[in-house]
């Protein structure tokens, strides 16, 4: 069972990131649906936001895996 706590930690980090990126993606979709002409700007901003969230989540995952 070694490492299972670390795996749990990684899993928790991923849940947070999943919710966050889901929010970002959903809102971006709404934004695009509302203003299709701004879609490229929205997409860029969305990718950056998703990347930042993902960065935090990956911190979590890496720390969890390193700390096992």
């Amino acid at each position: 069972m070694t490492g299972s706590i670390a795996a749990l930690g990684a899993g928790l980090a991923v849940i947070g990131a999943g919710i966050g990126i889901g929010q970002v993606g959903g809102k971006a979709m709404e934004g695009i649906a509302r203003q299709p002409e701004a879609s490229s700007k929205i997409q860029t901003a969305m990718i950056i936001a998703a990347a930042l969230i993902e960065g935090v989540a990956l911190f979590g995952v890496v720390v969890a895996l390193l700390g096992k």
Partner: peptide, 10 residues
């Protein structure tokens, strides 16, 4: 650091 981790982890 986030850049490093992101690329590596993905």
């Amino acid at each position: 650091f986030a850049l490093m981790i992101r690329l590596y982890a993905n």
